[in-house]
Design a protein around this nucleic acid. Structure first.
Length: 220
DNA sequence: ATGTAGATTGTCT
DNA sequence: GACAATCTACATT
């Protein structure tokens, strides 16, 4: 299957026409806390198409969030299910912060916290369509294909050079932010809802959202 | 071309 | 001891 990238409607960047990725980052702005401090499922759905942006070593790393999963304190798959622990503490704080945890002895996973202070929730950022800083990401990932850079929660943290030093970071603040592109140029995105990936618990819940047909989402 | 086994380790019960 | 994502190597189509 040879895909003509330029005409692939599933690729978010192409839907913006001729705008340059760095210009798009410049004219986008952080969400207010009120965007995050509400029902986690709504945040998980609506955060798709947002920009994940990190400035590091004079480079701008950026990409569209194309896949996310909701985690809520009243459900077994959530780290906060059994209450506060040192690891999941930031999930109980304000919405709009980075919750970054370690998995499998090798990888970090990035979440954006949701719900008001005192109630734990988060959206696991599972995949990103990279649009800027691809060379930096290729070096970090030791992979050439853009598809392989951020198509999974462990992959994207390698590409964006994220680890626990950014746990608790306010995602509206430079140099690590989630931005909303201007409404008037943001394309309508077809969103698909499915079960979550990689969990043993609470598998039946359809808490995973992704941009339909995006080649940048994680597989199986 | 597709499938799967094995390795890797901190966090929480 | 259960739990998590990804890569590699090897086995089977």
């Amino acid at each position: 299957m040879t895909e003509s990238r330029g005409n692939n409607a599933a690729v978010v960047m192409d839907r913006y026409g001729k705008i340059d990725p760095k210009t798009l980052v410049e004219i986008s702005k952080p969400y207010p806390k009120s965007f995050y401090e509400r029902n986690t499922l709504n945040v998980a759905r609506e955060i798709l198409g947002s920009l994940l942006v990190r400035e590091i070593d004079g480079e701008i790393l950026a990409g569209f969030i194309v896949e996310g999963e909701a985690y809520i304190e009243n459900e077994e798959g959530c780290h906060a299910y059994n209450g506060v622990t040192p690891r999941c503490e930031v999930m109980f704080g304000r919405g709009g912060m980075a919750y970054i945890y370690f998995v499998y002895g090798m990888y970090w996973c990035l979440n954006a916290t949701t719900e008001k202070e005192g109630r734990a929730g988060a959206v696991l950022i599972r995949s990103v369509e990279p649009i800027s800083g691809l060379d930096f990401m290729k070096r970090k990932r030791k992979k050439e294909s853009p598809i392989e850079l951020c198509s999974g929660p462990g992959k994207l943290t390698v590409s964006f050079a994220l680890d626990n030093r950014l746990n608790g970071w306010d995602l509206s603040k430079q140099p690590f932010r989630i931005l909303e592109p201007p409404r008037d140029i943001k394309p309508e995105l077809k969103i698909k809802k499915t079960g979550r990936i990689g969990l043993k618990k609470a598998k039946h819940l359809e808490y995973r959202f992704c941009i339909d047909n995006s080649p940048y989402i994680s597989h199986s």
